[in-house]
Design a protein around this nucleic acid. Structure first.
Length: 253
DNA sequence: AACGTCGGACAGTCAATACG
DNA sequence: GTATTGACTGTCCGACGTTC
């Protein structure tokens, strides 16, 4: 699998984009930075990269998945007077040149973002398939679908070197937070991309979680819905206990 | 090495404005 | 009405400091 930046796969590392085999650009291209629509409060405070999934990669990594909640955006000002705009030319065209990609020289159809560039492969992207199991793979994370969002695909497969554990056997007690099972040595999940043709090798892949839950796009993000419900301490906009204690960048109102 | 902090560049949003 | 502009706002890169 070859990843290239561009973004577009929700919850995928922002600059990564899977190219079908054979369509991989000959040389690395540089993409512009992609941003998530809404970073979680933790990433926001830490000024770190977030992603669309909840919990996001970073929160999962630091074990604060339950505190991973969307940050609140404040409303834009209205009624702000705008200065006089630049006139367009007589044909309704803006007086702007269209950028031609320098690195490839390949003409890019208008309206289509230029193929972009590929930064060095992040460590966790190394290897033939998606994330390293030890990183994001431990949490299957189909992104939370939002109105207006395209289908955020998050193909999931689980690698089970040994038969999957019987999750029921762990006996989730009533009242006990039904957290996603802690990473277990025998049970890794990993994100695979649609084009990946995986050799089965010593592993076995199945599109279902061993505990029987579907892992393909779930409108309600099943694995995390009831499991990572807000903790009492996460009460909405509470800032306490989050990563980074940095004061807000800007003032509200 | 891993993590936190933070300045500031960059990207996305969307109301105001221009235009047909 | 749609298209375009550009100010505003949020994201997060990357440098630096701190802690283990």
């Amino acid at each position: 699998m070859t990843m290239h930046p561009v973004g577009g796969y929700s919850s995928m590392p922002m600059h990564m984009y899977p190219f079908p085999p054979g369509l991989v650009p000959a040389q690395p291209l540089r993409s512009k930075r992609r941003q998530v629509k809404n970073a979680c409060t933790n990433c926001q405070k830490a000024c770190k990269k977030c992603d669309d999934a909840r919990p996001c990669l970073r929160c999962v990594k630091y074990g604060i998945a339950e505190e991973c909640v969307d940050s609140q955006r404040k409303e834009r000002k209205k009624g702000v007077k705008r200065g006089p705009y630049k006139k367009r030319d007589g044909k309704g065209n803006s007086v702007e040149q269209i950028d031609v990609p320098e690195q490839t020289g390949i003409p890019v159809p208008q309206g289509m973002p230029p193929p972009s560039a590929s930064p060095p492969m992040p460590p966790y992207m190394a290897g033939p398939v998606g994330y390293a199991p030890s990183f994001y793979g431990q949490f299957p994370a189909p992104p939370t679908p939002k109105p207006g969002d395209g289908p955020a695909y998050y193909p999931q497969f689980y690698i089970t070197p040994v038969p999957p554990p019987n999750h029921n056997g762990h006996g989730v007690q009533e009242g006990e937070p039904q957290g996603y099972p802690q990473p277990q040595p025998q049970f890794y999940s990993a994100t695979f991309l649609p084009y990946a043709h995986q050799p089965y090798g010593p592993y076995m892949m199945h599109p279902h979680r061993p505990d029987g839950q579907m892992t393909m796009p779930s409108p309600h993000y099943a694995p995390f819905g009831p499991m990572y419900g807000k903790s009492p301490s996460a009460g909405g906009s509470s800032d306490s206990g989050n990563l980074g204690g940095r004061a807000e960048h800007g003032e509200d109102n």
